[in-house]
Design a protein around this nucleic acid. Sequence first.
DNA 1: TCATGATACGGGCAAATGCTCAAGTCTAAT
DNA 2: ATTAGACTTGAGCATTTGCCCGTATCATGA
Lengths: 323, 323
Amino acid sequence: MAKGNLHAAFDDSEVSPRDLAARAAWLSFVGGMTQDQIAQELGISRQRAQRLVARASSEGLIRVRIDHPIARCLELERDLKRRFGLEAAWVSPGIGAGADPLNGLAPFVAPVLERLFDDETPKVFALGTGRTLKTVVDHMRATEGAHHKLVSLIGNVAPDGSASFYEVIMRLAEKTRARHYPMSAPVAVRDAEELALYRSLPHIKAARKLAQSADLAIAGIGQMGNDAPLYMDGFLTAEELTDLQTAGGVGELCGHIFDREGRYLDHPVNHRMVGVRVPEAEMPVYCIGAGKSKVTALRAALGGGLITGLFTDEWTANTLISE
Amino acid sequence: MAKGNLHAAFDDSEVSPRDLAARAAWLSFVGGMTQDQIAQELGISRQRAQRLVARASSEGLIRVRIDHPIARCLELERDLKRRFGLEAAWVSPGIGAGADPLNGLAPFVAPVLERLFDDETPKVFALGTGRTLKTVVDHMRATEGAHHKLVSLIGNVAPDGSASFYEVIMRLAEKTRARHYPMSAPVAVRDAEELALYRSLPHIKAARKLAQSADLAIAGIGQMGNDAPLYMDGFLTAEELTDLQTAGGVGELCGHIFDREGRYLDHPVNHRMVGVRVPEAEMPVYCIGAGKSKVTALRAALGGGLITGLFTDEWTANTLISE
DNA sequence: TCATGATACGGGCAAATGCTCAAGTCTAAT
DNA sequence: ATTAGACTTGAGCATTTGCCCGTATCATGA
């Protein structure tokens, strides 16, 4: 009899492929077996074993953590805190100049955020949006955080009417089982009148109030170059972008644009955001961002004291410090 | 200029090899880079990169977790709980018939124990000893558990005078920063008189009292075949072992030997243990054990209600249930 | 019923990996 | 200063892995 049956009968008709993938991955990574051995153990072909392991990786079933704080990164964290008066800083090791910095940053940030949700005392987390935050949340594991609340800092309806900005808060809520309060409104409105209207709506009022009293805000950061996310996603026209650049805008947090000194611009665009502007009162604001394109924005936000905590990568930290 | 220097100058004289290993592993696993690329990035040879990654793995810097509960294992956990009236059960996926079951069990158990230490309310954990527990503790990461206490259920001095049994509690204390109370006494003494003497010593009294009032006991389990750990480690002579086997001994918890029904033997050897016998009062007892050699002992302990929680592997769980 | 597209499978092969071995390097004791 | 011993390094090589591609299977719809 084949070895495989010593453990269980892997009758294909009963076993979900996901299960089999997890099992193959377990045998490979934990058991340290070769694909041939896995194939024999599970009674499948070598190629199939290979595919299962690959699939487990690509579907994110495998979570790899490095259990060693790299000295250089700790040093950078200390320097960042001292230099910019931050409460907290996390620096992920670089993953090479060519790759998207998010590939290294996200798996590094995710476990830290997970730990925030392990806290027993109920907390309110206010969340921004964006690709960075989305990627980080995707890297988080499911955790038990039903006693916490999640609230959005920013409206969830894009100019094209889609509610794609739901995603960050919804996904995080799925993973933590926390109650969630998206801000069901456009990100930006057309004029002051509309703004007053939206802000007077009870559910918006409530969401804004909850966000303003949050225990912690977590947000990405946007650059204001020609690749500005606000422009790419259609929140700004080309003219508006140019105008904002001319007015000194170098970055934005939750759609609120600030200048080189980290002061929010007194510009019409900034008066059309339905969401909340950070920092609000004494609330700590943790910002996640790395990469060449974000350096200027980060430096401004740090200099202006807009953020109290920073997640970034080694290269960005180096650059921010050695200016 | 080489890519490597974009990130940092990896001057060998300043960088600890451990750091470099962690960095290589990070590039390999998180960055998904090939060893050639890593070598180029760090400015070292391919072989060296390979060695660094291997070293990081072997030193346990890499922690791999499978984020998918394998259905078959969940089923077994449920069955174990129902069948033996357990509070809790964890079943790790098998890693093949040939390998040491501990290789699969330890990395699986470690994160569960880690979570126990995440609890905010201070707890007292009473610990046994043995190869199983040692291996599990080695797989745990450092965590913040300074508010907890660790106490040993069993003396730490072996018959040869060595204090190798310190290791489990000391290592765990290192990782959790918890206060620790090893039982500084022989595991077993010669006669009732010595026993009374040792048990009357203040520090033993205190340790035993603390252990008896612990919130949770965690222990391995020993078989009483000819490969009995108690015999292999010199706690029993060959004659004593045979005698105990004849008297019906099939397993032991913390050196206390029990029979097929899970009743502690009324045998001289059992009256020479300085440590604490579990279960004590209402204290939950979580037992870790897997493999062919442990099945009989586990079955007895489960049947006799000596343990309230079990960590084991798929094969062992299967065997225990389908008897 | 047959055509169509999607998906899964295994063969084969180039690339990547892990391991052994001989040569080199550093340490420390004589 | 010398030398034995422990350790590290890089070259070469066998094994393992990842991936492309032709084929088989299956579900769907004309």
